[in-house]
Amino acid sequence: MKLPPFEYAAPATLKEAVALLASHGGEAKPLAGGQSLMPMMAFRIAQPSLLVDLRKLPDLKSIAIDKDGVRLGAMVRWRDIQDDKRLAQAHPLLQAAIAHVAHYQIRNRGTVGGSVCHADPAAEMPGIALTCDAEMTVMGKGGQRVIKAADFFLGALTTALQPDEILIEVKLPAWPAGRRFGFQEFARRRGDFAMAGIAVFYDPDAGGTASNAHVGVIGVGEKQRRLGKAEAAINGSTLDEAAIAKASAAASAEVEPQDDIHASAAYRRALTGTLLERALKSAAG
């Protein structure tokens, strides 16, 4: 349970950080909050030769909100999101989801960037990024580029990030005032990784008919994913009982869960539908 040997650097600029990452032939890792990387190193699942600590980089810690949306610096911590009163209007789904992240102590340390780049299939932030069509700004040796969430998450613990690239910012598109949303997850104990989690939003018109439905699921299958058939069932409906049941059934049918030590695949399939049903009911309420 002791860390394997590694070198450590805490550069003051992004440019230096990128150069350091590039200098170790893919064996270097950025260190953000360390809430996943440190345990993985203690278990010797990860053995990077160099840790590039991002804590001194000044520009990655802010939450910026404007008409285009919410821009979360990669070093924004869960606590910052929970404490930012503006987000109650600017992105209530984000705040609802982050309340489920692990435990108090971990929320004080864990970061947006760390979670997004770690890409755990059951983690909340990657799920929100995918559900909300987030854009990831990354910087590498070749300069900056923007990756859409749909192209960013490739599989369990796998992203489109190159070894020399650092995630700088996650941009969530603007949140319209009338938007409805829900977030539901269920874990064996409070703070555990979810056996399933659902993020949903849609935009109702004046008559209550939904459009632009986005449904994301975490904790079920190989990666976080959108549920297109459930979204189709929501769009054009008024979210009455029948529509909710239809969307819920579509979600259950669409996921590809597997058995593991905590739950059977059949349970996770059913749980996905149950959580979507509850998320939609809370969205309507």
Partner: peptide
């Protein structure tokens, strides 16, 4: 409600951390 030390059929240990072997916490 929670605890179970599990192995696969070949005797590999599947619950080698407290994320897998679930203990009661203060809130449970």
């Amino acid at each position: 409600m929670l605890e179970h030390l599990q192995y696969d059929e070949q005797g590999q240990f599947l619950t080698g951390s407290l994320a897998d072997y679930l203990l009661p916490t203060a809130t449970d």
